[in-house]
Protein backbone atom coordinates (compact mmCIF):
# COMPACT_ATOMS: atom_id res chain seq x y z
CA UNK A 1 0.00 0.00 0.00
CA UNK A 2 1.33 3.42 -0.83
CA UNK A 3 1.50 6.11 1.80
CA UNK A 4 -1.45 7.93 0.26
CA UNK A 5 -3.61 4.84 0.42
CA UNK A 6 -2.68 4.42 4.06
CA UNK A 7 -3.42 8.05 4.84
CA UNK A 8 -6.76 7.79 3.10
CA UNK A 9 -7.65 4.63 4.92
CA UNK A 10 -6.67 6.13 8.24
CA UNK A 11 -8.87 9.18 7.63
CA UNK A 12 -11.83 7.12 6.47
CA UNK A 13 -11.41 4.81 9.46
CA UNK A 14 -11.43 7.78 11.80
CA UNK A 15 -14.64 9.12 10.29
CA UNK A 16 -16.25 5.69 10.31
CA UNK A 17 -15.38 5.31 13.98
CA UNK A 18 -16.86 8.72 14.77
CA UNK A 19 -20.02 7.77 12.91
CA UNK A 20 -20.34 4.46 14.76
CA UNK A 21 -19.67 6.25 18.03
CA UNK A 22 -22.48 8.74 17.44
CA UNK A 23 -24.90 6.00 16.42
CA UNK A 24 -23.89 4.04 19.52
CA UNK A 25 -24.43 7.09 21.74
CA UNK A 26 -27.94 7.66 20.41
CA UNK A 27 -28.81 4.00 21.05
CA UNK A 28 -27.47 4.25 24.60
CA UNK A 29 -29.41 7.45 25.27
CA UNK A 30 -32.61 5.88 23.93
CA UNK A 31 -32.10 2.97 26.31
CA UNK A 32 -31.58 5.18 29.38
CA UNK A 33 -35.25 5.40 30.47
CA UNK A 34 -35.37 1.63 30.89
CA UNK A 35 -32.10 1.78 32.87
CA UNK A 36 -33.83 4.08 35.35
CA UNK A 37 -36.59 1.50 35.70
CA UNK A 38 -34.03 -0.98 37.11
CA UNK A 39 -32.07 0.97 39.72
CA UNK A 40 -30.42 -2.20 41.10
CA UNK A 41 -28.26 -2.55 38.00
CA UNK A 42 -27.39 1.14 38.16
CA UNK A 43 -26.42 0.99 41.83
CA UNK A 44 -24.18 -2.04 41.25
CA UNK A 45 -22.40 -0.15 38.48
CA UNK A 46 -22.14 2.99 40.61
CA UNK A 47 -20.28 0.82 43.08
CA UNK A 48 -17.97 -0.68 40.44
CA UNK A 49 -17.30 2.60 38.67
CA UNK A 50 -17.62 5.24 41.35
CA UNK A 51 -16.89 3.80 44.78
CA UNK A 52 -13.90 1.78 43.59
CA UNK A 53 -12.33 4.88 42.02
CA UNK A 54 -12.74 6.79 45.27
CA UNK A 55 -9.46 5.75 46.85
CA UNK A 56 -7.22 6.91 44.00
CA UNK A 57 -9.17 10.18 43.85
CA UNK A 58 -8.73 10.78 47.59
CA UNK A 59 -4.99 10.07 47.59
CA UNK A 60 -4.32 12.02 44.40
CA UNK A 61 -6.42 14.98 45.57
CA UNK A 62 -4.66 15.15 48.92
CA UNK A 63 -1.20 15.22 47.35
CA UNK A 64 -2.13 17.64 44.57
CA UNK A 65 -3.46 20.09 47.14
CA UNK A 66 -0.40 19.72 49.35
CA UNK A 67 2.07 20.19 46.48
CA UNK A 68 0.18 23.22 45.19
CA UNK A 69 0.33 24.86 48.60
CA UNK A 70 4.09 24.26 48.80
CA UNK A 71 4.72 25.62 45.32
CA UNK A 72 2.51 28.63 45.93
CA UNK A 73 4.41 29.37 49.12
CA UNK A 74 7.80 29.23 47.36
CA UNK A 75 6.70 31.79 44.77
CA UNK A 76 4.52 34.02 46.94
CA UNK A 77 6.84 34.34 49.92
CA UNK A 78 9.22 36.44 47.78
CA UNK A 79 6.49 39.03 47.40
CA UNK A 80 5.37 38.83 51.00
CA UNK A 81 2.04 37.53 49.76
CA UNK A 82 2.03 34.10 51.36
CA UNK A 83 -1.49 34.76 52.67
CA UNK A 84 -2.66 34.24 49.10
CA UNK A 85 -1.64 30.57 49.12
CA UNK A 86 -5.21 29.56 49.81
CA UNK A 87 -6.47 31.65 46.92
CA UNK A 88 -4.01 30.13 44.47
CA UNK A 89 -4.71 26.60 45.68
CA UNK A 90 -8.48 26.94 45.65
CA UNK A 91 -8.75 28.69 42.29
CA UNK A 92 -6.46 26.25 40.50
CA UNK A 93 -8.26 23.31 42.06
CA UNK A 94 -11.79 24.52 41.40
CA UNK A 95 -11.25 25.86 37.92
CA UNK A 96 -8.82 23.42 36.36
CA UNK A 97 -7.13 20.71 38.36
CA UNK A 98 -10.19 19.24 40.05
CA UNK A 99 -12.16 18.43 36.88
CA UNK A 100 -9.10 17.63 34.74
CA UNK A 101 -7.35 15.37 37.25
CA UNK A 102 -10.55 13.54 38.01
CA UNK A 103 -11.24 13.09 34.30
CA UNK A 104 -7.76 11.71 33.66
CA UNK A 105 -7.75 9.44 36.70
CA UNK A 106 -11.22 8.22 35.85
CA UNK A 107 -10.18 7.42 32.28
CA UNK A 108 -7.24 5.45 33.62
CA UNK A 109 -8.89 3.67 36.51
CA UNK A 110 -12.55 3.15 35.59
CA UNK A 111 -12.64 3.89 31.85
CA UNK A 112 -10.12 1.20 31.01
CA UNK A 113 -11.97 -1.28 33.20
CA UNK A 114 -15.25 -0.47 31.43
CA UNK A 115 -13.64 -0.99 28.02
CA UNK A 116 -12.02 -4.25 29.03
CA UNK A 117 -15.20 -5.60 30.63
CA UNK A 118 -17.48 -4.78 27.71
CA UNK A 119 -14.81 -5.82 25.20
CA UNK A 120 -14.43 -9.21 26.85
CA UNK A 121 -18.20 -9.65 26.88
CA UNK A 122 -18.15 -9.00 23.16
CA UNK A 123 -15.18 -11.29 22.52
CA UNK A 124 -16.77 -14.15 24.41
CA UNK A 125 -20.03 -13.50 22.55
CA UNK A 126 -22.01 -12.72 25.67
CA UNK A 127 -23.44 -9.64 24.01
CA UNK A 128 -24.60 -11.50 20.93
CA UNK A 129 -25.91 -14.23 23.21
CA UNK A 130 -28.08 -11.65 24.94
CA UNK A 131 -29.35 -10.42 21.62
CA UNK A 132 -30.25 -14.00 20.68
CA UNK A 133 -32.40 -14.14 23.81
CA UNK A 134 -34.09 -10.89 22.78
CA UNK A 135 -32.40 -9.05 25.62
CA UNK A 136 -31.10 -5.69 24.50
CA UNK A 137 -27.49 -5.33 25.75
CA UNK A 138 -27.81 -1.55 25.37
CA UNK A 139 -30.35 -1.55 28.18
CA UNK A 140 -28.84 -4.20 30.46
CA UNK A 141 -25.09 -3.93 29.98
CA UNK A 142 -24.10 -0.66 28.33
CA UNK A 143 -26.78 1.68 29.69
CA UNK A 144 -26.20 1.14 33.44
CA UNK A 145 -22.42 1.45 33.00
CA UNK A 146 -22.77 4.60 30.95
CA UNK A 147 -25.15 6.29 33.36
CA UNK A 148 -23.14 5.22 36.41
CA UNK A 149 -20.00 6.74 34.89
CA UNK A 150 -21.72 9.99 33.96
CA UNK A 151 -23.08 10.31 37.51
CA UNK A 152 -19.82 9.30 39.20
CA UNK A 153 -17.42 11.75 37.58
CA UNK A 154 -18.99 14.98 38.97
CA UNK A 155 -19.34 13.38 42.41
CA UNK A 156 -15.70 12.26 42.33
CA UNK A 157 -14.68 15.73 41.20
CA UNK A 158 -16.43 17.32 44.18
CA UNK A 159 -14.65 14.96 46.53
CA UNK A 160 -11.32 15.61 44.80
CA UNK A 161 -11.77 19.37 45.16
CA UNK A 162 -12.69 19.20 48.82
CA UNK A 163 -9.85 16.87 49.77
CA UNK A 164 -7.31 18.86 47.74
CA UNK A 165 -8.25 22.07 49.51
CA UNK A 166 -8.03 20.29 52.86
CA UNK A 167 -4.57 19.04 51.84
CA UNK A 168 -3.52 22.59 50.98
CA UNK A 169 -4.98 23.76 54.28
CA UNK A 170 -2.94 21.19 56.19
CA UNK A 171 0.32 22.20 54.50
CA UNK A 172 -0.33 25.92 54.79
CA UNK A 173 -1.30 25.94 58.45
CA UNK A 174 0.68 23.04 59.96
CA UNK A 175 3.84 23.07 57.87
CA UNK A 176 4.17 26.66 56.74
CA UNK A 177 2.66 28.30 59.80
CA UNK A 178 -0.05 30.36 58.12
CA UNK A 179 -2.96 31.45 60.29
CA UNK A 180 -6.09 29.42 59.91
CA UNK A 181 -8.41 32.42 59.64
CA UNK A 182 -6.28 34.07 56.96
CA UNK A 183 -6.37 30.90 54.92
CA UNK A 184 -10.18 30.69 54.80
CA UNK A 185 -10.93 34.41 54.60
CA UNK A 186 -8.63 35.03 51.61
CA UNK A 187 -10.35 32.17 49.86
CA UNK A 188 -13.87 33.27 50.67
CA UNK A 189 -13.19 36.85 49.61
CA UNK A 190 -12.18 35.93 46.09
CA UNK A 191 -13.63 32.54 45.16
CA UNK A 192 -16.99 32.96 43.49
CA UNK A 193 -19.62 30.25 43.79
CA UNK A 194 -21.00 30.60 40.28
CA UNK A 195 -17.91 31.62 38.39
CA UNK A 196 -15.52 29.14 39.94
CA UNK A 197 -17.32 26.24 41.58
CA UNK A 198 -20.26 25.91 39.19
CA UNK A 199 -18.00 26.22 36.15
CA UNK A 200 -15.79 23.50 37.58
CA UNK A 201 -18.81 21.25 38.04
CA UNK A 202 -19.99 21.92 34.48
CA UNK A 203 -16.54 20.96 33.25
CA UNK A 204 -16.66 17.72 35.20
CA UNK A 205 -20.08 16.88 33.75
CA UNK A 206 -18.72 17.34 30.22
CA UNK A 207 -15.56 15.35 30.95
CA UNK A 208 -17.54 12.55 32.57
CA UNK A 209 -19.88 12.30 29.60
CA UNK A 210 -17.08 12.22 27.04
CA UNK A 211 -14.74 9.88 28.92
CA UNK A 212 -17.48 7.38 29.66
CA UNK A 213 -18.79 7.58 26.11
CA UNK A 214 -15.33 6.87 24.71
CA UNK A 215 -14.53 3.99 27.06
CA UNK A 216 -17.89 2.26 26.71
CA UNK A 217 -17.85 2.68 22.94
CA UNK A 218 -14.30 1.38 22.57
CA UNK A 219 -15.29 -1.75 24.44
CA UNK A 220 -18.42 -2.25 22.35
CA UNK A 221 -16.54 -1.55 19.11
CA UNK A 222 -13.41 -3.59 19.80
CA UNK A 223 -12.08 -6.25 17.46
CA UNK A 224 -13.10 -9.43 19.31
CA UNK A 225 -9.61 -10.90 19.74
CA UNK A 226 -7.22 -10.65 22.65
CA UNK A 227 -5.06 -8.24 20.64
CA UNK A 228 -8.06 -6.15 19.64
CA UNK A 229 -9.16 -5.97 23.26
CA UNK A 230 -5.72 -4.71 24.31
CA UNK A 231 -5.76 -2.07 21.60
CA UNK A 232 -9.26 -0.98 22.53
CA UNK A 233 -8.27 -0.55 26.19
CA UNK A 234 -5.23 1.51 25.22
CA UNK A 235 -7.28 3.65 22.86
CA UNK A 236 -9.92 4.17 25.52
CA UNK A 237 -7.38 5.62 27.98
CA UNK A 238 -5.44 7.63 25.38
CA UNK A 239 -8.46 9.10 23.61
CA UNK A 240 -10.25 9.72 26.89
CA UNK A 241 -7.32 11.62 28.37
CA UNK A 242 -6.71 13.65 25.23
CA UNK A 243 -10.41 14.49 24.99
CA UNK A 244 -10.36 15.77 28.58
CA UNK A 245 -7.32 17.97 27.98
CA UNK A 246 -8.58 19.31 24.65
CA UNK A 247 -12.09 20.00 25.89
CA UNK A 248 -10.67 21.67 28.98
CA UNK A 249 -9.00 24.28 26.80
CA UNK A 250 -12.20 24.94 24.86
CA UNK A 251 -14.36 25.11 28.01
CA UNK A 252 -11.93 27.42 29.78
CA UNK A 253 -11.88 29.73 26.76
CA UNK A 254 -15.70 29.84 26.75
CA UNK A 255 -16.23 30.13 30.51
CA UNK A 256 -13.68 32.76 31.40
CA UNK A 257 -14.19 34.99 28.34
CA UNK A 258 -10.63 35.19 27.13
Amino acid sequence: MSIFQKLGQFTLDAFARTGRGTQFLSQVLLGLPSVLMRPTLLIRQLFMVGVQTLLIILVAGLFVGMVLALQAYIVLVDFGAEESISLMVSLSILRELGPVFTGLLFAGRAGSALTAEIGLMKSTEQLSGMEMMAVNPMKYVIGPRFLAGVISVPLLTLIFMAIAILGGYFVATELLGLYEGVFWSQMQAKVDFYEDLVNGIIKSLVFGFVVVWISVFEGYDCVPTSEGLGQATTRSVVHGSLAVLGLDFVLTAIMFNV
Partner: peptide, 24 residues
Protein backbone atom coordinates in the same frame (compact mmCIF):
# COMPACT_ATOMS: atom_id res chain seq x y z
CA UNK B 1 -21.22 1.91 49.95
CA UNK B 2 -22.90 3.80 47.10
CA UNK B 3 -24.98 5.72 49.62
CA UNK B 4 -21.84 6.70 51.51
CA UNK B 5 -20.20 7.74 48.24
CA UNK B 6 -23.08 10.02 47.27
CA UNK B 7 -23.34 11.43 50.80
CA UNK B 8 -19.59 12.14 50.79
CA UNK B 9 -19.90 14.00 47.52
CA UNK B 10 -22.79 16.06 48.89
CA UNK B 11 -20.76 16.88 52.00
CA UNK B 12 -17.92 17.98 49.71
CA UNK B 13 -20.30 20.20 47.76
CA UNK B 14 -21.58 21.71 50.99
CA UNK B 15 -18.07 22.40 52.22
CA UNK B 16 -17.00 23.87 48.88
CA UNK B 17 -19.98 26.19 48.65
CA UNK B 18 -20.03 27.32 52.28
CA UNK B 19 -16.43 27.28 53.38
CA UNK B 20 -14.51 27.85 50.15
CA UNK B 21 -16.65 30.04 47.93
CA UNK B 22 -18.59 33.05 49.14
CA UNK B 23 -22.05 31.58 48.67
CA UNK B 24 -22.85 32.21 52.34
Amino acid sequence: MVGLFVAGAMAALFMLSMKVSNLA
